[in-house]
Simulated assay, not measured.
Amino acid sequence: MQVDKIRGPQTDQLFRAILELRDLEECYRFFDDLCTISEIQSMAQRFEVAHLLRLKKTYETIKKETGASTATISRVRRCFDYGNDAYEEMLSRLYPDEKPYEPKK
């Protein structure tokens, strides 16, 4: 499993703290203290790229809508194709009526 490369006591502590967040406002406050604005924007952008890939949007459309580079779009795409299925899992919870991403065979 690919997550082993990030696993450790400090990461466990961070993720346990995230799991304790109770609402959106608490998330905003915690991540504002924890991360730079740029880090938060980068994570949000990658997640939106994942959402648009799931909707089968073209790289050009995704680039225009998110401002993401083709390198970022490709990285997210590789996660869909070869990753831990976490993007799909979270997006299917947020948008249960949308069709899931299907990697090229």
Score class of each variant (00 low, 15 high):
Asp81Gln: 10
Ala71Trp: 00
Arg46Trp: 03
Ala44Arg: 00
Ile18Glu: 07
Pro9His: 09
Asp33Ile: 01
Ser42Leu: 09
Asp81Glu: 15
Glu39Gln: 14
Gly83Val: 08
Glu89Ala: 12
Met43Glu: 09
Thr11Arg: 02
Leu55Phe: 00
Lys64Arg: 13
Asp97Glu: 14
Phe30Asn: 10
Glu25Phe: 03
Val76Trp: 05
Ile40Tyr: 02
Asp81Thr: 04
Ala68Arg: 03
Ile18Gly: 09
Met90Val: 14
Ser42Trp: 00
Gln45Arg: 15
Thr66Gln: 04
Leu14Glu: 03
Gly67Phe: 01
Ala68Met: 06
Pro96Ile: 10
Ser69His: 07
Arg22Phe: 00
Leu52Phe: 12
Glu25Trp: 01
Arg77Phe: 01
Leu94Lys: 07
Gln10Lys: 12
Gln13Gly: 07
Glu20Asp: 15
Glu98Val: 02
Glu20Arg: 13
Arg77Pro: 00
Ile62Tyr: 03
Leu91Trp: 05
Thr36Ile: 11
Arg22Ser: 15
Cys27Ser: 15
Arg75Val: 00
Gln45Trp: 00
Phe15His: 00
Arg16Ser: 15
Arg46Gly: 03
Arg78Asn: 09
Glu88Pro: 00
Leu52Ala: 06
Leu14Lys: 02
Gly67Thr: 03
Leu52Gln: 08
Leu24Val: 14
Tyr28Cys: 13
Ala50Gly: 15
Phe47Lys: 04
Lys99Pro: 01
Leu53His: 03
Cys79Trp: 12
Phe47Gly: 02
Phe31Glu: 11
Arg93Met: 13
Tyr87Gly: 02
Pro100Asn: 04
Leu55Arg: 14
Lys57Cys: 14
Asn84Leu: 11
Ile73Thr: 08
Tyr82Arg: 13
Phe31Lys: 07
Ser69Leu: 09
Leu55Glu: 15
Ala17Cys: 06
Pro100Ile: 07
Lys57Asp: 09
Leu91Phe: 05
Ser38Gln: 11
Ser74His: 10
Tyr28Phe: 15
Ile37Trp: 01
Cys79Ile: 06
Ser92Thr: 08
Asp23Val: 10
Ile37Val: 12
Cys27Gly: 14
Glu88Lys: 10
Glu39Tyr: 02
Arg46Asn: 07
Arg77His: 15
Asp23Lys: 07
Thr72Asn: 05
Arg16Asn: 14
Thr58Gly: 11
Tyr59His: 13
Leu34Glu: 08
Phe80Met: 06
Thr58Phe: 04
Ala44Ser: 12
Pro96Ala: 11
Tyr28His: 11
Arg16Val: 07
Asn84Thr: 12
Ala68Tyr: 02
Asp33Phe: 12
Ala50Arg: 03
Ile40Ala: 15
Glu26Ile: 00
Lys63Gln: 15
Thr58Asn: 08
Asp81Lys: 04
Glu48Asp: 09
Val49Tyr: 07
Asp33Thr: 05
Val76Glu: 10
Thr61Trp: 09
Leu55Ile: 00
His51Asn: 13
Gln41Ala: 14
Arg77Tyr: 10
Arg93Thr: 06
Glu89Met: 08
Arg75Trp: 02
Leu53Cys: 07
Leu52Gly: 02
Ile40Gly: 08
Ala86Thr: 12
Ser74Cys: 07
Thr66Arg: 04
Leu55Gly: 05
Leu91His: 04
Arg54Gly: 14
Asp85Val: 02
Leu94Glu: 09
Leu19Gln: 10
